[in-house]
Nucleic acid binder design. Structure first.
Lengths: 90, 90
DNA sequence: TTTAAATTGGGTAATTCGGGGA
DNA sequence: GTTGTCCGAATTACCCAATTTA
């Protein structure tokens, strides 16, 4: 199936994350995101991986959250998006 | 389909709410507002959600609260109004 | 081939992170 | 219980010129 093997340019990824293209390059250099280099040295990123990072690689199930009750003090302990990757390291 | 899912930085959201960026971070940590993390650990917020919170259209439950002897939950929270948050996206 | 836009690399400010305490 | 401020550390944003891409 098509998991989205399209390649995105640093500018595209930067726009998706609302960061500078330079920052995306830094992620690739740091190994936080996979990258493919063109013969000229430019980087390309897999759309599937980028989308996974955007939504929080976890899964796709957050259709509703405590709707019947206001999250007043029932701390869900989650920031809306399941992102277990960099939740603890820093 | 452009509901405005642009991403805002903590500083942007803080300026909109007239609070400190740290406060916005606390909201995200407490789950009061959804957040997306960059691979570097910084947060980004959906403009649509922020606007909904600003306008109050998201939760129409602010008619009265606090003073009267109100139970913990009395009103139907969101997910019923014009709130195009991430409800079943991809 | 030439042109315009994007990307690369290094270097330096600004922002954000997390924890602690007022 | 919520918010604002302090600190150190990490991440990110903008500056430049040269190369690559389309």
């Amino acid at each position: 199936m098509d998991t989205g093997d399209r390649l995105l340019t640093p500018g595209e990824v930067a726009a998706l994350f609302r960061v500078d293209p330079k920052t995306v390059t830094r992620w690739a250099a740091a190994g936080r995101i996979g990258s493919i280099r063109t013969p000229g040295g430019h980087r390309r990123f897999r759309e599937s991986e980028v989308r996974a990072l955007l939504e929080g690689e976890g899964m796709l199930d957050e259709v509703d959250e405590g709707v019947t009750d206001r999250p007043r003090n029932a701390g869900p302990a989650n920031s809306g998006g399941p992102n277990p990757m960099n939740a603890g390291l820093y």
